[in-house]
Simulated scan of single mutants.
Amino acid sequence: MHAEVFAALGDETRLGLIRRLGEGGPASTVRLSTGTGMTRQAVTKHLNMLGRARLVRHRRQGRETLWDIDPEGFDAARAFIDAMSRQWDTRLEALRQFVED
């Protein structure tokens, strides 16, 4: 799961979509594609990848599909990064003690 999250976030276009959703709240594919120079199909493809990584979610509202940030996906990514950070802190502290002794 983590590799899919970081692969999804490793694309500037997808980061832009995340940024737009974070700033503007739920939005349709039409709204998200406006002003980007991309087709709705291209935006949908990027949104689907973000969805598979559990970073965004969608719901139907009438004839539109609205996309929004999925906080649980970001919470899981943050927990992974925090765990990695703690491991590195532990290793660096062990190295510091070794060097100082």
Results as ranks from 00 to 15, higher is better:
residue 82 D to K: 06
residue 78 R to E: 14
residue 68 D to Y: 04
residue 79 A to L: 14
residue 97 Q to S: 08
residue 65 T to A: 11
residue 75 D to E: 14
residue 89 D to E: 10
residue 79 A to T: 06
residue 66 L to N: 06
residue 80 F to W: 13
residue 93 E to C: 09
residue 66 L to Q: 01
residue 89 D to K: 06
residue 71 P to V: 04
residue 72 E to D: 14
residue 85 S to I: 00
residue 90 T to M: 11
residue 69 I to H: 07
residue 97 Q to Y: 05
residue 96 R to F: 09
residue 70 D to G: 05
residue 67 W to L: 09
residue 94 A to W: 11
residue 97 Q to L: 13
residue 81 I to R: 01
residue 83 A to Y: 09
residue 97 Q to W: 06
residue 67 W to H: 02
residue 99 V to K: 04
residue 68 D to H: 04
residue 100 E to H: 04
residue 69 I to T: 08
residue 68 D to W: 01
residue 70 D to M: 13
residue 92 L to C: 05
residue 69 I to G: 02
residue 96 R to H: 12
residue 63 R to P: 02
residue 76 A to P: 00
residue 91 R to A: 15
residue 84 M to H: 09
residue 96 R to I: 03
residue 75 D to L: 15
residue 96 R to G: 01
residue 67 W to R: 01
residue 69 I to S: 03
residue 69 I to L: 14
residue 94 A to R: 14
residue 76 A to C: 05
residue 76 A to R: 11
residue 70 D to L: 13
residue 74 F to H: 05
residue 69 I to Y: 07
residue 88 W to K: 02
residue 84 M to N: 10
residue 79 A to G: 01
residue 80 F to N: 09
residue 96 R to A: 12
residue 63 R to A: 10
residue 88 W to P: 00
residue 85 S to K: 07
residue 66 L to W: 03
residue 88 W to Q: 01
residue 100 E to M: 08
residue 85 S to M: 07
residue 100 E to G: 01
residue 77 A to K: 04
residue 91 R to Q: 14
residue 67 W to N: 06
residue 87 Q to F: 00
residue 90 T to L: 05
residue 96 R to S: 12
residue 84 M to L: 15
residue 89 D to I: 11
residue 71 P to S: 05
residue 95 L to W: 10
residue 79 A to F: 04
residue 87 Q to N: 05
residue 90 T to F: 08
residue 77 A to M: 12
residue 95 L to N: 02
residue 100 E to D: 01
residue 66 L to Y: 06
residue 79 A to Q: 10
residue 95 L to G: 02
residue 70 D to F: 12
residue 64 E to T: 05
residue 97 Q to K: 10
residue 64 E to G: 07
residue 94 A to V: 11
residue 75 D to Q: 13
residue 89 D to Q: 09
residue 83 A to R: 13
residue 72 E to C: 02
residue 71 P to K: 05
residue 95 L to I: 13
residue 76 A to W: 06
residue 94 A to D: 15
residue 68 D to E: 15
residue 81 I to G: 06
residue 89 D to R: 05
residue 89 D to T: 07
residue 97 Q to H: 08
residue 63 R to K: 08
residue 65 T to Q: 13
residue 70 D to S: 06
residue 97 Q to E: 11
residue 93 E to M: 10
residue 64 E to W: 01
residue 75 D to W: 08
residue 85 S to C: 04
residue 84 M to P: 05
residue 85 S to A: 09
residue 100 E to I: 10
residue 82 D to S: 09
residue 90 T to W: 06
residue 64 E to M: 11
residue 63 R to H: 02
residue 88 W to E: 03
residue 80 F to C: 10
residue 69 I to F: 12
residue 78 R to K: 15
residue 88 W to T: 00
residue 95 L to V: 11
residue 99 V to T: 08
residue 68 D to G: 07
residue 73 G to P: 00
residue 81 I to N: 00
residue 85 S to T: 13
residue 100 E to F: 02
residue 63 R to W: 01
residue 71 P to Y: 04
residue 87 Q to T: 08
residue 71 P to H: 00
residue 70 D to V: 02
residue 86 R to E: 03
residue 85 S to V: 02
residue 65 T to H: 07
residue 71 P to A: 07
